[in-house]
């Protein structure tokens, strides 16, 4: 019964992507669109396969390099993102907790926040050169603000009586931060982190297209110069899958850390 349900739910999820791929394949094969402009999925799959394994040489210079490229991109995401999580959560809790810190820091942050991270690219290149560092800086910027804003919101919307309850049980300021405010703000912090990880991938790829000579974004741009749209799309697919995987891992971590949130969602009773 359970297996049957799993299969049913899985096939529901596959209906739309599979139909799109089939129609796309037909379009390309039957010549509705020039196959140079829109390569067929099968062709993309062959290029992606060679890019990963290096077996047919279809991906030319990138043949067999996929793991390297993916690892370079992933490293930039992880480095910039971790930096952003640590700083944004710390600063966010301080701003949410202290009126003085709010007055001191919030105006500056609210002015910097609307500047799109990509606008920092020129400065990032001047400051950090052409390598990992500008990319990490941009990833940091992109994920910092969503995490910060959500953390501040999470701390500010805590039930004031929870803090009072903590105080009446003898909690000092540190206890309140560690055992009341941080756990109470965690759901907000995590939703900021999920938004942030998406922005992190966006900015890695953007940075790689402009300021870095490795990674999935670089391959995407390089393939575009050589009119290899199959590789362009293969890069897009790789980025999508990696972004999906990081979000999936994050979701699993969240579910493990917030067992008390399980069953809070409206539809929870159905499963």
């Amino acid at each position: 019964m359970k297996l049957k349900q799993t299969i049913a739910s899985f096939s529901t999820k596959l209906v739309v992507p599979l139909s799109i791929i089939v129609i796309w394949e037909l379009f390309s094969r039957l010549g509705f669109v020039s196959s140079a402009l829109l390569p067929a999925p099968t062709k993309i799959l062959v290029s992606l396969g060679d890019w990963i394994t290096g077996s047919t040489g279809a991906a030319e210079v990138h043949s067999g390099q996929w793991l390297n490229d993916a690892a370079s991109s992933a490293w930039r995401v992880i480095a910039g993102y971790s930096l952003a999580v640590v700083t944004a959560v710390t600063i966010g809790i301080i701003i949410g907790w202290s009126k003085f810190a709010e007055k001191l820091l919030e105006p500056t942050i609210q002015i910097l926040r609307p500047i799109p991270p990509v606008a920092w690219i020129p400065l990032a290149i001047i400051w950090f050169g052409i390598a990992n560092r500008p990319a990490i800086f941009l990833v940091f910027l992109a994920s910092f603000f969503p995490i910060l804003v959500n953390t501040i919101h999470g701390v500010r919307t805590i039930d004031k009586n929870l803090v009072r309850a903590g105080g009446m049980m003898g909690a000092n300021q540190w206890h309140l931060l560690r055992y009341v405010i941080l756990p109470a703000a965690l759901p907000s912090i995590f939703s900021g982190m999920r938004i942030g990880v998406g922005s992190a991938w966006m900015l890695t790829v953007t940075a790689e297209m402009i300021a870095v000579k490795s990674g999935l974004g670089y391959v995407l741009w390089d393939a575009y110069y050589f009119l290899r749209y199959d590789l362009v799309i293969a890069s897009m697919v790789s980025i999508g899958l990696l972004g999906f995987s990081t979000d999936f891992i994050l979701k699993k971590i969240i579910a493990a850390v917030l067992p008390w949130q399980r069953g809070v969602s409206i539809e929870s009773t159905q499963s």
Binding site: D159, R164, A165, G167, M168, G170, A184, L258
Partner: peptide, 27 residues
């Protein structure tokens, strides 16, 4: 505030992330 006085609120005001046992032993 101080632990020499205990408070029971109108709404239970428990820490939602703690189990019953852990809420009670928070002090």
């Amino acid at each position: 505030m101080g632990a020499d006085r205990g408070m029971v609120f109108q709404a239970p005001t428990l820490m939602p992330w703690l189990t019953v046992s852990k809420n009670i032993s928070f002090y």
